[in-house]
């Protein structure tokens, strides 16, 4: 079989570049087999090989997996991620539908306004958000504004604070839905389909590939987000995996020399579930992309 030169070129670039992409992870895997002492004594090369490899760092993670609390962290992370994914996809899809298919005065202005909200640097709202949560009316022992903890340190932080409005997703859906011919809607109307059916039975399946993309990016952002649990909750039973791991690594770095191999292993620990989820979704994602011809 003859290989086309362009394909050979593609193979070389993608493979070499891909190896560069995963190289830090390879380094992490290698470094995680070091003991703290050996790591400190080694002159690090690009591929450090431990003379006395240890799985003690992994064992900490595996051992932790048996821990009741860690299981709670895991399920918190999982539910939180699922919740955000469902919400973000739904709002993105519906929002995209509105801006792609409906006609009303001030649409462009409204769209620009919503797009603008995505450009606000998030840090500015952090302290005001904290105050708002603490003063949430009639929650957590509050009377109208005062008295208790508000919704701080409760599941509401994840329920309310997580999703909001996924304008960038809506933007993406809008772009792709605009390529679906309007005649499809008309035909459905003539067949007597309600708006509800039009949205969910006819337009939704066509947007699945793009929704898969939104779902993956949302899942990844939510999973890696340690800020929300860290700032707005304190109880153990509300922590998520990344937040808990950040804590463990703060023990690893406290007082004196950081235990790099342990930290690196924990870093792998955060990444691994997400990689699994990506692999799981990826088939759907790639499959979706394949028929994402969005038959125009």
């Amino acid at each position: 079989m003859k290989v086309k030169p362009i394909n050979l070129f593609g193979h070389i670039i993608l493979l070499v570049g891909g190896l560069v992409m995963i190289y830090p992870l390879i380094f992490m895997v290698l470094a995680s087999t070091f003991t703290k002492q050996e790591y400190a004594a080694t002159v690090l090369g690009p591929f450090p090989i431990a003379i006395k490899p240890t799985f003690a760092n992994f064992r900490i993670i595996v051992g932790a997996a048996k821990d009741h609390l860690v299981q709670i962290y895991f399920f918190n992370s999982l539910f939180r991620t699922l919740y955000s994914v469902v919400f973000a996809s739904l709002t993105a899809f519906l929002g995209g539908f509105v801006f792609a298919r409906l006609r009303f005065r001030g649409k462009d202005g409204l769209f620009l306004f919503m797009l603008a909200t995505a450009m606000i640097p998030g840090v500015v709202a952090l302290i005001p958000t904290y105050i708002e949560y603490a003063r949430w009316p009639y929650a957590g022992g509050n009377n109208i504004f005062m008295g208790g903890k508000g919704i701080l340190d409760s599941w509401w932080v994840y329920m309310i604070g997580g999703p909001a409005l996924n304008i960038m997703g809506a933007f993406l859906v809008k772009q792709s839905m605009e390529k679906v011919p309007i005649e499809l809607d008309e035909a459905a109307k003539i067949d007597g389909a309600s708006t509800f059916r039009l949205i969910f039975q006819i337009l939704l399946p066509l947007q699945l590939p793009i929704l898969a993309f939104i779902a993956i990016t949302t899942a990844q952002a939510t999973w890696n987000d340690w800020g929300t649990p860290f700032f707005f909750t304190s109880s153990d039973k509300l922590q998520t995996l990344p937040a808990a791991i950040t804590r463990i690594s703060s023990i690893a770095t406290s007082a004196g020399v950081p235990d790099y191999p342990l930290m690196i292993t924990l870093g792998l620990g955060i990444t691994f579930p997400m990689l699994l989820i990506f692999f799981f979704f990826q088939r759907f994602f790639v499959q979706g992309l394949a028929n994402a011809g969005l038959k125009g």
Binding site: N7, G10, H11, L14, L15, G17, G18, L19, M21, I22, P24, L25, F27, M28, Q220, N224, W226, P242, T246, S249, Y260, M263, I264, L266, G267, L268, I270, T271, M274, L275, F278, F279, Q282, V286
Partner: peptide, 26 residues
């Protein structure tokens, strides 16, 4: 249409799913 393009896609996507705190340390 390359052989093994799913693997390439995954390789290139790996950094996106890693955590910032961990990889900046690296």
């Amino acid at each position: 249409s390359l052989f093994g393009k799913a693997i390439y896609r995954t390789m290139w996507y790996v950094p996106v799913v890693t955590s910032v705190v961990a990889t900046t340390q690296i």
